[in-house]
């Protein structure tokens, strides 16, 4: 049986981490929480839940946390990894949808897209940022995607071994597409659901993140 591991990067997520772990647990064989320099009780809460917790001493950003998470998952024998945010806006049930194309060998990397199916109440500003991100992803990497800023992805062993992340912050979401292009990784999108809360919206990206992301990606390109 294949080993599916969930990697959850978390920075100051004491309000949601326990609920996220409990909802994800039935869907995977192992959960790895990357506590990215949190100043609150995120690490202690995750440990109390009995999952693998890797503590970054400093807050290095989403990209660095994902990089560490993929590395650890591989070392622990993961066949498939699903990465998802710790702010509770993703649905754990979507992990099965993410894993299906990987387990069937149809692709190496799966992006969960919030925009493939209707029904997700996504704030207008988020839609706009994502659309700009999609256009930039196409312009910089020649890849058309409906959700360049997705917070849930799946990887098989080939993708995990091939991808070499360099961006340590939020721009990692777009960097995955650069790696897809460079490493000839087979990829596809699957529809996922999302629930925005006041909490998750306060943790997300803003306009200045976008400008910084663009500058960093242009340099990385």
């Amino acid at each position: 049986m294949s080993k599916v591991v969930a990697v959850i990067p978390a920075f100051n997520e004491q309000a949601t981490i326990q609920e996220v772990i409990r909802s994800v647990r039935p869907m995977v064989q192992e959960i790895i929480v990357i506590n990215d320099g949190s100043l609150d009780a995120t690490s202690a809460i995750a440990r109390a839940e009995g999952v693998v917790v890797i503590d970054h001493r400093l807050n290095c950003g989403l990209g660095a946390a994902l990089s560490t998470g993929l590395h650890v998952a591989r070392r622990r024998g993961a066949d498939f990894v699903v990465t998802l945010d710790a702010d509770g806006q993703m649905f754990a049930e979507d992990i099965a949808r993410i894993c299906a194309p990987l387990e069937e060998g149809r692709c190496d990397l799966v992006i969960g897209s919030r925009f493939l199916e209707g029904g997700n109440a996504i704030p207008k500003r988020r839609r706009l940022y994502n659309r700009i991100g999609n256009i930039l992803t196409w312009a910089l990497f020649g890849i058309q995607t409906s959700d360049s800023q997705s917070g849930i992805r799946g990887f098989n062993a080939h993708a995990m071994d091939s991808i070499g992340l360099r961006c340590s912050r939020m721009e990692v979401s777009s960097e995955f597409f650069l790696e897809i292009q460079r490493r000839n990784i087979r990829w596809q999108e699957v529809p996922v659901r999302i629930q925005y809360t006041a909490y998750s919206l306060s943790k997300g990206q803003n306009f200045f993140h976008g400008v910084r992301t663009l500058a960093r990606l242009a340099m990385r390109r």
Partner: peptide
Amino acid sequence: VDNLDERISKLVGQHAIEEY
């Protein structure tokens, strides 16, 4: 600064894995 950030992040990640 970006290169420095990348190197520090790698170091922090390696340290975290070794510590674990």
